[in-house]
């Protein structure tokens, strides 16, 4: 099953990614920066101050008003876009029937998102790098710039979709992986973290590490419908597909209520943490379409324009 089709990708041509707090890119990109710069596009005037470059004084205005004004122009810049996809076994969920990939498979959904976001970035001239990681290792793509890299990105994701969705024995410790990524990265930028956050480590440490390096983080929290409201009942021994840990529970309506409460508390905790640190947080059920998430949820958050 293919991750993308051509028609869907065309919708993305109008979109750009924006980052509020990311530093100016080193190369001139074809995105508008919030920074005033030296491009031709007029932005604003301001009073002359000592030491300003006289080349940028607006002589016409000076002649008319006999007061010096500096002409500000829009700076154009490029953006480093990092897309991190958690590929642990908990993401390879739910298992499909007869070797098929389930339609609400979390990793597939995650790869779709990664592809879409990366494609948008490439179209708008950003420096895009995609990393599929687990605690054992990572698969990197990029960084690349330019729309010509769109096709290779998609191929990379399709290939990994085939490999990873089959499952295996992959675990993630998000705190370690994120800290590692933060240390190793050469250029901070807009970072999309796509994960279910079902991990042993504390994801907040990893996020803090990224923030301290100057990343602007967008957290896309992907959970399957079966995790949001489990359709389980009876006396069960629940086995963790990732760690093999077991939990014995007796499930009735009461227990499911309790689970729902726990889930809500957990998710609320993460959401509050992110809100306090300027991390864009979105919970996405894996049976939602990526169009809905990108075009509505991320637009509302100002990440996509």
């Amino acid at each position: 099953m293919r991750l993308f089709d051509e028609a869907a990708l065309h919708k993305l041509e109008q979109l750009t990614l924006t980052a509020d707090s990311v530093r100016v890119g080193v190369m001139k990109g074809n995105r508008r920066s919030r920074k005033r710069g030296a491009s031709v596009e007029f932005a604003d005037y301001r009073d002359y101050a000592q030491g300003d470059d006289l080349r940028r004084l607006d002589w016409n205005v000076f002649a008319r008003l006999e007061r010096p004004f500096i002409k500000l122009t829009q700076e154009e810049e490029d953006l480093a876009v990092h897309i991190l996809v958690d590929t642990s076994d908990s993401m390879s969920w739910p298992p499909g029937a007869d070797g098929e990939i389930a339609p609400d498979h979390k990793l597939r959904f995650g790869l779709q998102l990664a592809g879409v976001l990366g494609y948008i970035g490439l179209l708008s001239g950003d420096l895009v790098s995609v990393t599929l990681f687990d605690s054992a290792g990572r698969r990197d793509w990029g960084p690349f710039r330019g729309r010509s890299n769109g096709w290779p990105l998609i191929q990379f994701l399709e290939a990994n979709n085939q490999n990873l969705t089959n499952g295996g024995t992959r675990q993630t410790a998000l705190d370690l992986s994120l800290r590692d990524y933060a240390l190793r990265s050469r250029r901070p930028g807009l970072l999309f973290l796509i994960s279910d956050l079902l991990t042993s480590g504390d994801v907040r440490e990893g996020l803090n590490a990224l923030l301290s390096r100057g990343y602007e983080v967008v957290l896309l929290h992907v959970l399957s419908p079966g995790e949001l409201s489990p359709e389980l009942a009876g006396d069960l021994r629940l086995l963790d597909v990732e760690t093999g840990e077991a939990a014995e529970v007796t499930l009735d309506a009461l227990a499911l209520d309790e689970y729902a409460t726990h889930l809500a508390t957990w998710q609320q905790g993460i959401s509050t943490f992110c809100g306090a640190r300027g991390i864009h947080y979105s919970l996405a059920a894996s049976d939602t379409s990526w169009e809905q998430l990108i075009l509505q949820a991320l637009r509302q958050q100002g990440v996509v324009r």
Binding site: S224, E227, G234, D235, L236, L238, L239, E245, V249, W266
Partner: peptide, 20 residues
């Protein structure tokens, strides 16, 4: 005697078990 059921993670269930 419980039925084995594989889930994506027991992270949230552990809380439940602890409570109960």
């Amino acid at each position: 005697r419980r039925r084995d059921q594989v889930v994506s993670s027991t992270l949230l269930w552990q809380e439940l078990v602890k409570d109960r």
